[in-house]
Amino acid sequence: MATDAKKPIDKPAKNIVHEQAILVETIKKELREQRLYEKFSINPFTKREILAAKPNTYPDLVQDEADSNFVEMIKRANLEPTKKYQFPQTSSQEIGWLTTPLIDVDKNDKRFNFNRHRSEISAYAEEYYKMFPKKPANAAGAAATTATKKEA
């Protein structure tokens, strides 16, 4: 049984020449596919603050004409999703995407309009709570801690 035990497999010794050849080939492939990116622009989907002009420039001499395409892109980025897209982009947006009511609202229709009605009991309770408002929980706890500190 002891002779049937698995022996560790010997790995071949590392060949430095082959490793260097692989490294050189990898670097050549990376340099061949590398491109210099020179076109930079501001991300229009991040909200930005409007900055004032520099304090050492005269307002009459500053003639910055904003790029109309860029201004439209910024305005579109700040819209809510229902105005930006025709359909919801995620499954979370599907809830509440359609906000138009299915039927016209008629305040005189008693089937759909449930106004708040005040009875004698609810009027009494409302006046009672106006006379004796609830104390905040933190104020009661703070008073108890100050009393225990004075006793100690």
Rank of each mutant, 00 (worst) to 15 (best):
N15S: 13
K149D: 05
K83I: 01
L98P: 02
A123S: 08
A53K: 14
Q93P: 00
E19Y: 13
S119P: 09
A52S: 08
S68L: 09
L79Q: 11
K54L: 11
P55M: 00
R32N: 14
H18W: 08
T145I: 07
F87T: 14
E65Y: 05
P55F: 05
F112E: 01
V24T: 09
E151I: 09
K54S: 06
F70E: 09
S41V: 08
A152C: 04
R35K: 11
V17W: 10
N43I: 07
Y85C: 02
S92Q: 10
F132Y: 04
K29L: 14
F112T: 08
T146E: 03
H117M: 12
S91K: 02
T57F: 08
K7E: 10
R118F: 15
A77F: 11
A13R: 13
K29G: 02
I103Q: 04
A21T: 11
I50C: 06
A123T: 04
D4L: 15
K110W: 08
R76C: 00
L102E: 09
T145Q: 00
V105A: 06
Y37W: 15
S68M: 14
K130R: 09
E151W: 10
T82N: 09
N78A: 08
E151R: 14
K150M: 05
P59Q: 07
A147S: 02
I74R: 04
P88I: 02
M73S: 11
P136R: 07
A137I: 06
T26E: 12
D109R: 13
I95S: 01
K75P: 00
S119T: 09
V17N: 11
S122R: 04
P55A: 03
E25Q: 02
Y124C: 04
I16R: 03
W97S: 02
N115M: 05
K134I: 07
P59E: 06
